[in-house]
C-alpha cells in the first residue's frame, strides 16, 4: 500500500463557518510533505482530522487504508507534534519521554537520548517550567525518536532560535535518510523548510490551492518588470498571479515556463525577467484577498 493518507472532499464546519472545505489529497509512503499556508488557513484542522482528534463534518478519510477513529492499528503508527501541545502539569521532560517510549512502537531510546543532549534539555525539569523553546524541543524529540510511519510536525519550533531549528532540520534529514517514513511539515517558514520537501500542498482559505511536486514548483513562476504598457502587452494571455505598480513601472508575477519566444519578446520590450522563489510564489498566491477567506456562509 503506497498511500498513507487519502482524503476526499473532507470538510469541517463550525456552525456556518467552514474551516476546511472539500479538501482532497493523497500522501504517499516515505515522502516528506510540506503542508503550507497562512495561519488560520485550515492546516491544523486538517491534521487534527487525519489523526482522529477532530471529527470531519463530511468527506472520506483513510489513513493506512482504514478509518483512523478509535483504530489502534492506525493510531499507533501516527505521531502528531503540535505547536501548543499540552502536558500534565506535574510531568517532567523525563516523564514525557519515558511514556512516549511505551506509546510509540518504533521508539528509539538511544536516538532520543542523543537528541536530549543535542537540544540540551534538563530531563528532571517540569514541562510547565520549561522555556518556550525547550518546550518545543521536547515535541521535536518525541516526533523524531518515535519514528512513526506517519509523523506530523505542526509548527513545531515556536520559540526555537535559528541554531536549534537548523539542528532539527539536520537531524530530521539524517534520520529520514536512514529510516524513511512519511513526514508532514506544516509551517509558514517556507524558505527554511522548502529544501527538505519532496511534495508541497498549499492550503488557502480552507481549500487546496497547490498540490505539486516541490521540484516542479521551483522555477515554475517568474516576474517581469518594466514600463506598465510594455508589461501589459507581455502578460496578455498569461496566468498572472500578482501585479505591483510602482509609478509608471509595473512588476507582474506569472506562472508557467518561459519560452525562448517569450524571452525574445521580453528583450524587445526591454523587460527585466527574474525567477520567483518557492517562498515568494506561495506568498503571492496566498496573499490575495479571496472570497473564501474566513469561510463564507452557505
Amino acid at each position: 500500500m503506497s498511500n498513507v493518507v487519502e482524503v476526499s472532499r473532507l470538510t469541517k464546519s463550525y456552525g456556518n463557518v467552514t474551516a476546511v472545505s472539500e479538501v482532497s489529497f493523497k500522501l504517499e509512503a516515505d515522502k516528506i510533505y510540506g503542508l503550507l499556508g497562512r495561519n488560520g488557513a485550515g492546516k491544523t484542522t486538517i491534521m487534527h482530522m487525519i489523526t482522529a482528534q477532530l471529527f470531519a463534518t463530511s468527506g472520506v478519510l483513510k489513513v493506512f487504508g482504514e478509518e483512523p477513529y478509535e483504530n489502534s492499528r492506525v493510531l499507533s503508527q501516527i505521531c502528531f507534534i503540535k505547536e501548543s501541545q499540552k502536558y500534565p502539569d506535574n510531568y517532567t521532560v523525563n516523564d514525557v519521554l519515558e511514556l512516549s517510549s511505551s506509546l510509540f512502537p518504533n521508539w528509539d531510546r538511544e536516538f532520543a537520548n542523543d537528541l536530549v543532549k543535542d537540544f540540551q534539555l534538563p530531563l528532571k525539569r517540569k514541562m510547565k517550567k520549561l522555556s518556550r523553546g525547550m518546550h518545543s524541543s521536547v515535541g521535536i524529540i518525541v516526533g523524531l525518536a518515535s519514528r512513526a510511519p506517519l509523523t506530523i510536525f505542526d509548527e513545531p519550533y515556536l520559540g526555537l532560535d535559528a541554531v536549534a531549528r537548523a539542528l532539527f532540520y539536520d537531524r530530521l534529514i539524517e534520520d529520514y535518510s536512514e529510516n524513511p517514513r512519511t513526514i508532514v511539515l506544516s509551517t509558514h517558514l517556507i524558505d527554511e523548510v522548502s529544501r527538505l520537501l519532496e511534495h508541497i500542498i498549499v492550503i488557502d482559505g480552507g481549500k487546496v490551492l497547490i498540490n505539486e511536486d516541490a521540484e516542479e514548483l521551483r522555477g515554475s513562476a517568474y516576474s517581469v518588470a518594466g514600463t506598465a504598457t510594455a508589461v501589459e502587452s507581455f502578460i496578455a494571455g498569461k496566468t498572472v498571479i500578482s501585479r505591483e505598480p510602482f509609478g509608471v513601472l509595473l512588476t507582474a508575477g506569472i506562472t508557467g515556463r518561459l519560452s525562448e519566444q517569450d524571452r525574445k519578446k521580453a528583450d524587445a520590450l526591454n523587460l527585466a525577467i527574474s525567477p520567483i522563489s518557492l517562498q515568494q510564489l506561495i506568498v503571492q498566491l496566498t496573499g490575495k484577498k479571496t472570497d473564501v477567506k474566513g469561510g463564507a456562509p452557505k
Binding site: I173, S177, L196
Partner: peptide, 18 residues
C-alpha cells in the same frame, strides 16, 4: 551518496538522488 548530499545541503534525499 544521495544521503550524504542530503545531509550536507540539508535537502530531501529524493531530490539529491534525482
Amino acid at each position: 551518496s544521495k544521503n550524504e548530499f542530503a545531509s550536507f545541503y540539508q535537502i530531501n534525499p529524493a531530490t539529491a538522488a534525482k
